[in-house]
Design a protein around this nucleic acid. Structure first.
Length: 560
RNA sequence: GCGUUCGUAGUUCAGCUGGAUAGAGCGUCAGACUUCGAAUCUGAAUGUCGGGGGUUCGAAUCCCUCCGAACGCACCA
């Protein structure tokens, strides 16, 4: 635990002790200690930390919050808390001012931990699986997939930092109806390319990339599939196209900085019989009934709005059936928590998926689904409908070429997944230099530059003396140090809420505080002690900026 | 119609389990480079937190209601 967290825990505990001892002394009456918080006030004049304990006690104690506050302060043991002074403010807040010297420990802490600074252990080694993107292999990756990739990959890294054992997974939708449509589309393109008059299937995939795929095949293998049996022909075409599409998806995501641990095939669930076994298990538990020739899951028993078909009247299982088998498989692989990132258009699926897990006897609370609002494409001020079927969308590849991987990943991770993003490619291109990512990267380059120059001046990275570290007491330095000390708590909150975008905000703040410091204090001063102290501060800031950027999948340049 | 999510400055968006005077970027205005990187910094202006009600010491945050938006409500995935 970092020093700052230790201090906060200690004070929080001592506050309860103070309340209890005041009660024992007959100076305060309450039945049960209510929930209270110890937090950093927004306004620095309100001290370093503040608590609302007196206010939340007011009702039970039947006294004014300010009176209670003064009683609490009298009973508070401040040893080992770094508390320098306490005061009562506002409606009854207790504000604590800490001895600023505690801050100098932060630098040592950061430099000692290095890449591990910020690691916390709320995960306690639990195994978590994060499944994200899982795009249909029937087209190229688009903006929505880009958002999912940025979010999912950063979330996985964040959870790793928070002490979870994380596995990244991609679910390949290589079965079912869409593959059938895919096959028909491929076949039509194939026949058309070879001069035949083939109608394009209804509901087929119009993307240009599909034509390119078929062209590639014709260039390699000519018209050898023209004369064979259509069923066999489609099978060949699908196998070829699927291989190519998945290779492309894999490479594109890799270039976007995403490395998966597992690529899981939907078809394999059918082949292994898991889909059938899962349905049998549900049948045995009597959660399945027949109606109009189809098999239905009683998902309404578990909070769904209506029951769902799992086997069609023609005898084929639905996508939902395969998905149930898939999630059963996930839990059976031993994950303590399973996290899915889905587009908001799938929200109707959440209740039934959780319901299905409950039906199978798993704790649905261990299945967490993060819904991400859609990315809307804007062109010339108008919303353009994106769709794989129509073939009209901006690809992840194009996005990376136009604005770059770093800008794209930062852009998505700057936003709450709950907010809809309007994306205008022309605007993004024109404004790509305004992307806040450069603000952070510039700070990193600037930090690196200072260290390079220090080296040229003969600095050999000698640790500063403690009394020199204590000289970092300007308001700019103290604000910066506080922000640095807060990093482990930021990781804790972000991981608990599964919100990596908090880290993007954090690193922007940190970079801003550094830039402010840089403009007000000189690092490479003649005074050797002070210089060493500031250089160690610079090293520590650089370390943290680098650590955050690594989580966000953004590069941390030495120069730019 | 029912459900999910959202509505915060001119604009794009932050705002942890309810906390003190609601914050950033861009844009606007005024300043700062012969010294460590001006992709930076300093200062100024800008708000009925969609409207209304409720809960309480205290609400952008929780509840209700209305208005508006996106997305769902298939034997598609």
């Amino acid at each position: 635990m970092s020093l700052y967290e230790t201090i906060k825990t200690r004070i929080t505990n001592q506050l309860s002790v103070a309340a209890n001892s005041a009660q024992a002394a007959g100076e305060l009456i309450f039945e049960e200690l209510p929930n209270y918080v110890l937090e950093e006030p927004r306004d620095r004049q309100h001290g370093d930390l503040a608590t609302n304990l007196a206010m939340v006690l007011a009702k039970q104690a039947k006294r004014s919050p300010r009176e209670i506050a003064s009683t609490l302060i009298r009973h508070l043991d401040t040893t080992e808390t770094w508390i320098e002074s306490s005061e009562i403010a506002g409606a009854g807040f207790i504000n604590f001012h800490l001895d600023p010297l505690w801050l100098t420990n932060v630098i040592t802490e950061v430099l000692k931990a290095g890449e591990a600074y910020g690691q916390v252990d709320i995960g306690k080694g639990q195994r978590v699986q994060v499944e994200f993107v899982s795009a249909n292999p029937t087209g190229l990756l688009h903006m929505g997939n880009a958002r999912g990739a940025a979010l999912g990959d950063s979330l996985a890294s964040l959870l790793t930092m928070a002490g979870y054992q994380v596995s990244r997974e991609f679910y390949i939708n290589d079965a079912g109806n869409q593959i059938h449509n895919f096959a028909l589309s491929l076949e039509a393109r194939y026949l058309q390319l070879l001069g035949q008059d083939a109608p394009f299937p209804e509901g087929g995939y119009h993307g240009e990339d599909l034509i390119d795929t078929v062209k590639g095949l014709v260039a390699k293998e000519g018209d050898k599939y023209l004369s064979i049996e259509p069923g066999l022909r489609r099978e060949f075409l699908v196998r070829y196209a699927l291989g190519e599409k998945m290779r492309d998806i894999r490479e594109t995501l890799q270039d976007f900085g995403v490395e998966y641990d597992v690529w899981f095939s939907e078809q394999s669930l059918h082949d292994s019989g898991e889909v059938r076994l899962t349905l049998e298990e549900l049948q045995k538990k009597e959660y399945i009934y027949e109606k109009e020739g189809a098999l239905w899951l009683k998902s309404t028993l578990f909070g769904d709005e209506k029951d769902e078909v799992v086997v069609r009247s023609n005898g084929t299982p639905t996508y939902f059936a395969a998905d149930i088998a898939y999630h059963r498989n996930k839990f059976d692989r031993g994950f303590d928590r399973v996290v899915n990132i889905w587009g908001a258009d799938h929200h109707g699926h959440v209740a039934r998926m959780k319901g299905a897990m409950s039906a199978l006897g798993y704790d649905a609370d261990n299945l967490q689904i993060i819904l991400m609002q859609l990315v809307r494409l804007i062109q010339k001020g108008e919303v353009v409908k994106m769709s794989k079927r129509s073939g009209q969308y901006i690809t992840l590849r194009e996005l990376m070429e136009e604005v770059g991987k770093d800008a794209a990943r930062f852009f998505f991770n700057l936003r709450d997944p709950d907010s809809t993003v309007d994306f205008d490619m022309d605007l993004a291109k024109a404004q790509s230099s305004d992307n806040p990512v450069y603000y952070v990267q510039y700070a990193h380059a600037r930090l690196s530059s200072i260290l390079r120059q220090a080296e040229e001046l003969g600095d050999n990275g000698v640790q500063p003396l403690e009394e020199d570290l204590k000289r970092l007491n300007s308001s700019e330095e103290r604000d910066l140090l506080k922000k640095m000390a807060d990093f482990p708590s930021e990781i804790t909150v972000a991981a608990r809420l599964m919100e990596p975008h908090r880290l993007a905000r954090y690193v922007l703040d940190l970079a801003g505080l550094f830039h402010t410091f840089y403009n007000s204090q000189r690092v490479l001063v003649d005074d050797e002690g002070l210089r060493r102290a500031r250089l160690s501060l610079v090293r520590a800031v650089k370390q943290i900026v680098g650590n955050v950027l690594r989580i966000l999948g953004v590069s941390a340049p030495e120069r730019m």
